[in-house]
Design a protein around this nucleic acid. Structure first.
Lengths: 208, 208
DNA sequence: TTCCAAACTTGAGTCAATTCGGTTTTCGAG
DNA sequence: CTCGAAAACCGAATTGACTCAAGTTTGGAA
């Protein structure tokens, strides 16, 4: 049977998400009214609140899908990273930053980040946190990989290094979405410069 | 005359802020209704909106005062820092983290951070950003000071180092306020561990 | 002192998110 | 197949942030 109820549930979930994504894109976050989303999804207002705790949650759910893609794209880099520490880190973080703006505008990111800090306990707030953790882990994995490849010092603290690299980038990304005028090239350049400091600390010293 | 109008204005500003601070503390952010704040401040609802663009703005204003104090406390450390890089950084960041929780609960921080990312252009959103920048600058100042004292390598990128140190701590602080169970000791320990990596990169090599 | 324009205050009204009690649908035990 | 309970759905009613047109106060020019 697979459960008619479960099927309907999944169906509605998807319809709501699609409707919301459409309207957010067309009208922006504030412009997209819950009633409109409900209408487009052919569902009542009340039903939306059975699936999502509040409006922000819907956006966070959409963002989560996006972050998942980013995470996937990152796997390739970790598997076969560029042959020096600087480029490897830059490539991975580059994917994170560039990918993030393909489907989502700065305004949506602002909203999503705000919601996920405001309500870290709502279901999708937790999803979001989990994804953030996954990104940190992936960054640490890259450092670990580079260590195994003999590019990073054996005595470097893999975990701590990965965390710093990711946290710093994440904070810079927040600044970036807060400033409408800032270009992504500026963001990348700033992060690259900062990472030089770290690379100096963890990269294998050059033989002479 | 000093201006009756200006006097009234300052007076109302203060009364609103005090009323809001009281009610936020007693009832939490969401529990504090604008009407209640208006009543307590003996002012009408409309007047509040002459002074603050929205509810979040009021909280951000309160937080700003708090951050200002932190900034002041930090000056002392920058002026006469502990005699090694690790301790100096730990002391400054320690002040930032510990001080921040004296007057403001985690919940209020969550709200304030959310508001300032959501509306970076509102007057107090800008104030908040400016304060964040001031904290970054202070961290950079410390690194610079340590460099002049011969504790940090001459060739270290002062600006980039300071930014990473602050950004990383700030991100960790965000995680901390998002998790109600996390203790401040855990936060400090985590940041200390991460900073070891950085210290390795910028501290003057020990003579042998 | 008088009076006008600018600045400020007011609170009833608007708008949209969220809630909630009543109804419908699904499930599975008998 | 029948029926009662649980799960979902619905949308009108509630709530509370924010607006705005009308009224009030202030500063200072004449």
């Amino acid at each position: 049977m697979a459960g008619l109820r479960a099927k309907h549930r999944a169906d509605r979930h998807r319809r709501i998400l699609e409707a919301a994504a459409d309207l957010f894109r067309e009208a922006g976050y504030d412009g997209a009214k819950i009633e409109a989303i409900a209408a487009e999804a052919e569902v009542s207002v009340g039903t939306i609140y059975n699936y999502y705790r509040n409006k922000g949650d819907i956006l966070v759910a959409i963002v989560s899908m996006e972050v998942n893609e980013v995470l996937n794209a990152g796997r390739g880099v970790v598997a076969t990273p560029p042959a020096n520490v600087s480029d490897a880190i830059d490539t991975l973080l580059g994917i994170y930053m560039e990918h993030s703006l393909i489907y989502l505008s700065k305004a949506m990111w602002r909203q999503a980040m705000a919601t996920s800090t405001q309500q870290p306990d709502s279901p999708f707030g937790q999803t979001y946190s989990a994804l953030d953790r996954a990104l940190v882990d992936q960054t640490c994995d890259l450092v670990d990989r580079l260590k195994r490849l003999g590019l990073v010092r054996i005595d470097a603290d893999t975990r701590a290094s990965g965390e710093i690299i990711f946290n710093n980038m994440n904070m810079m990304f927040m600044e970036f979405v807060k400033q409408d005028t800032m270009a992504i090239a500026d963001l990348r350049a700033a992060v690259r410069r900062q990472n030089k400091v770290l690379v100096g600390a963890i990269a294998m010293p050059v033989k002479r």
